[in-house]
């Protein structure tokens, strides 16, 4: 089949980007979207041009590396499918696909379709865990956890951190991502002791990053390849509200969003060395 790919090309954050159209005459409908880009890149390299940079790794829809907008929809037209598993048979012969990166202030541009999602790591670092050090654990069956609870936790824990929720949200809000982790840990007995603090810490970091606010409209859950429900956002709101009400002192801290990649001067002496 024949397709026109109109792809956002941008050399780096400093330079202006623009769309470039590529016509592909021989797209196999069984290919995945990323394999289609592979084929395009091979021809670009052979022509001496720079290939399109895009993020990808497992290509099984679980690592969360890949993702971009296709015709204005995060991860393309198939529900619950990442671009690495999106096969080309979902497009019509002759169609034009507009491909552009996630756009959000909190996800600074890196190159072409690659963006910087370290904000998500910082949100997790600010409380998205059970504070249990290795070796402290009681037997796995000490806490009995009903199947329903466990399943609900799993539904929320299925998040792959791809960023589609932020990309699809008109406000570029990270509420679904943050809510998913707060829900996963908040409903399990292991996570209860830190429930309030976790919500305050993670919400504080989310708000320190330049994400927008949630307006409860649900675009995120529609775009989510793991179909994380909107319910997780209300769980976040509830835990945050309760946590804020009960708090006695300001014991959460946030880190300043880091957007630089450079480690400074080349080959500078490593400040971490012990010697």
């Amino acid at each position: 089949m024949k397709l026109t790919l109109k792809i956002w090309r941008q050399k780096n954050r400093g330079e202006k980007g623009n769309f470039v159209s590529y016509t592909m005459n021989d797209v196999n409908p069984e290919m995945s979207m990323l394999e289609c880009l592979d084929v395009l890149n091979e021809t670009l390299i052979e022509k001496g041009e720079e290939p399109v940079a895009f993020e990808h790794d497992c290509r099984e829809g679980i690592c969360g590396s890949c993702g971009f907008m296709i015709n204005g929809v995060a991860h393309g037209p198939e529900r619950a499918t990442t671009v690495c598993q999106l096969t080309m048979r979902h497009f019509k012969d002759g169609e034009e696909l507009v491909i552009e990166p996630w756009r959000a202030a909190a996800f600074p541009q890196i190159k072409d379709l690659v963006v910087d999602r370290r904000a998500f790591d910082r949100i997790i670092a600010s409380g998205g865990y059970v504070s249990v050090s290795t070796g402290n654990a009681p037997d796995g069956n000490t806490h009995l956890i009903g199947k329903d609870t466990s399943d609900r936790a799993m539904d929320a824990a299925a998040c792959i951190g791809c960023g589609a929720c932020v990309a699809a949200c008109p406000n570029a809000s990270a509420a679904l991502f943050t809510g998913a982790k707060i829900t996963h840990l908040g409903i399990l007995p292991q996570g209860k002791p830190e429930q309030d603090r976790r919500a305050r810490g993670m919400v504080a970091q989310m708000n320190t990053e330049p994400f927008g606010s949630c307006t409860n409209i649900g675009e995120c859950t529609g775009a989510c390849p793991k179909e994380i429900p909107l319910e997780v956002i209300s769980a976040m709101n509830r835990d945050y509200l309760v946590g804020s009400w009960k708090k006695r002192d300001d014991d959460v801290r946030v880190v300043r969003p880091m957007t630089e990649w450079s480690t400074g001067s080349k080959l500078k002496i490593d400040p971490n060395a012990t010697s």
């Binding site: 907008m69 330049p210 927008g212 859950t221 775009a223």
Partner: peptide, 29 residues
């Protein structure tokens, strides 16, 4: 305040954007 923040959260807009899951009413608040 939220609207201003939300505008700043996406300084570069999409050239094309489709709504797939939200109601008309919710998008027009």
């Amino acid at each position: 305040q939220l609207a201003m923040r939300n505008k700043a959260a996406r300084p570069v807009g999409y050239s094309r954007k489709q709504a797939i899951n939200s109601s008309y009413a919710s998008r027009t608040m």
